[in-house]
């Protein structure tokens, strides 16, 4: 998303919460701003910039803070997480970042067996898809129960992006369901993501 931000214009202006930024007829609200009575106000303290994504649309006003942005996972957002444990029914993981925003604190997520892939759901085995320590790209399915977010990897682009072999080196994907260790040539089964560059632009 951040990758094809086209025209970012820095206003060189510091604004504080409650500050009037512009009219709704001239701008969209971006992160760090909110709308009230037809006007746009800042909700964060930071630098103001406007961003035009599509030529025809109005520019979005954003207040950028120099420090970390804050966000929480919401439905359908793309999250990066780390597998913590697996059982035969599901795999637990910590959500590390939402979209392009890294979280300061992890949120708990869960990928159920039936949500691992889109086809042949009944043949899925959790241990053949994920192992603890894997970095997984997933999408928030629903906010789940009180305990954790329900995640899914049932898309081609989703799944393991980074896994280490027993030798401690990152493995290389060899097919959509297999990875190989470059050192030991050991082969392991994974639900591998067909990595899209813009999905992992931030993951580095």
């Amino acid at each position: 998303m951040a990758a094809h931000s086209d025209h970012v214009k820095h206003h060189n202006r510091i604004c504080v919460p409650g500050e009037h930024l512009g009219l709704e007829s001239e701008y969209h609200t971006g992160p760090g701003t909110y709308r009230r009575n037809g006007s746009i106000y800042a909700s964060l303290a930071g630098h103001l910039c406007s961003r035009t994504e599509v030529e025809t649309e109005l520019p979005a006003l954003t207040v950028l803070q120099q420090e970390i942005q804050i966000t929480v996972p919401r439905q359908k957002s793309l999250v990066t997480c780390k597998v913590v444990s697996i059982t035969s029914k599901f795999c637990r993981c910590d959500i590390l970042s939402v979209e392009s925003v890294p979280l300061t604190e992890t949120f708990r997520g869960m990928i159920r067996k039936e949500d691992i892939r889109a086809t042949e759901k009944d043949k899925v085995e959790v241990y053949k898809s994920f192992r603890p320590g894997d970095i997984v790209l997933a999408r928030v399915l629903s906010l789940g129960d009180a305990q954790s977010y329900l995640l899914t990897t049932a898309e081609n682009e989703l799944g393991v992006v980074l896994a280490k072999s027993e030798a401690g080196v990152p493995m290389v994907p060899t097919s959509w369901c297999e990875m190989t260790c470059p050192k030991t040539h050991d082969k392991q089964l994974r639900k591998v993501a067909k990595v899209q560059p813009h999905y992992i632009a931030y993951a580095s």
């Binding site: 919460p17 760090g32 909700s43 964060l44 303290a45 804050i70």
Partner: peptide, 11 residues
Amino acid sequence: IINAGIPMKDY
């Protein structure tokens, strides 16, 4: 709160 970057309507 401002320091934490939590959006609020106003001070």
